Amino acid sequence: MPFKTILAVLGIPQTDRDLQTAADISNQVRAHLSVFIVGFAPQPTSRYATLASTWFEQRDWNLKALGETATTVRDKLSKREISFEVDSIYAEVAGATYDIGERALYSDLILMGPDAFQNADLKQQIITGGLIQSERPVLLIPPGPIPTLHPKTVLLAWDSRAQSANAAREALQLLSNAKSVHVAMVDPTATPRQSGDEPGADVATYLARHGIDVTVDALPSAGRTVAQVLQRHANDVAADMIVMGAYGHSRLRELVFGGVTRSMLDEARLPVLMAR
């Protein structure tokens, strides 16, 4: 699907790099950019800490910084030829999850810029609110690579699960515009009810009907983790992006991820588009 509304979640005080990334990406596809700035309340050191004057002083300082950041962001975006809106929220550490999720309902893609990627609290809330609560795709952008929504080569991590298929559909326009798409499977097994006699053939046929140039790569793990195999293969084929399904569940507002998803969230070295 086309990305017409992009939600960028920013933390404070680190906003410059993520804002620049979001503005550049939105401009690439002429999308409306919705910026949501999250400020966190100071963590109380005891049950009585919220009554201390220092806690209120820190809160007032944070609120002022949040307002100044929002003003600065609006000023910077107003100088660019881009459709945008800016909103902000001041929340407890776990309090922004549902607000992010509500805004994500009206977006086609959520951006997690390099600074947000390195902010553990903000990262978890973007994933929980956007990917799990609202089931919107999230583009993780680690520090280093220059992200693009016009990738030339894409690696699609495939294991014949519904989440992988959903990720492929969410990224269908990206895949269609790419010069090559590698459907990568790690230690695939032929099973009649899932991957069929020839693992990867079904999804390759599906993508080919959309005019997508597909290569199916069956990769041995050879003692490495799936995430390590995928990232190494992405490097070998000079991929600009990895597209993958995310696995996990939300329980009492706590996100539990394991395996490949957790590794990618922590160790991604190039942009990863996740969907469920």
Results as ranks from 00 to 15, higher is better:
Gly223His: 08
Leu111His: 04
His182Met: 06
Thr71Tyr: 07
Asp202Glu: 15
Ser180Glu: 13
Ser53Phe: 07
Ser221Ile: 01
Ser26Phe: 01
Val216Ala: 08
Leu155Thr: 07
Val183Lys: 11
Leu156Asp: 01
Gly39Gln: 00
Tyr106Ser: 12
Tyr90Val: 00
Lys79Ala: 13
Asp121Trp: 10
Pro188Thr: 03
Arg262Phe: 09
Ala65Trp: 02
Thr72Met: 11
Arg103Thr: 03
Asp187Ser: 13
Gln194Cys: 09
Ala23Asp: 02
Phe117Asn: 07
Gln118Asn: 13
Val138Ser: 02
Leu33Gly: 01
Ala96His: 04
Arg136Val: 09
Tyr98Gln: 13
Phe56Ile: 03
Asp240Pro: 04
Met185Pro: 09
Thr50Phe: 03
Arg80Ala: 11
Glu57Trp: 05
Thr148Cys: 11
Leu230Ala: 03
Arg103Ala: 03
Val186His: 02
Ala70Gly: 08
Asp75Glu: 14
Asp213Thr: 12
Ala91Gln: 11
Gly248Ala: 01
Asn119Ser: 14
Ala168Asp: 02
His210Ser: 13
Asp60Tyr: 03
Ala91Glu: 14
Ala167Gln: 10
Asp202Ala: 15
Gly95Lys: 10
Ala238Asp: 15
Arg269Ile: 13
Ala178Glu: 02
Arg74Asn: 08
Arg262Ile: 05
Glu57Ser: 12
Pro114Trp: 11
Ala204Trp: 00
Arg74Asp: 13
Leu109Asp: 11
Ala49Val: 09
Asp266Gln: 15
Gln231Gly: 04
Ser160Gly: 08
Thr205Phe: 12
Ile141Ala: 00
Lys79Leu: 15
Val186Arg: 06
Phe257Met: 12
Glu57Asp: 14
Glu81Ser: 14
Pro145Tyr: 03
Arg232Lys: 13
Val229Glu: 07
Gly245Ser: 05
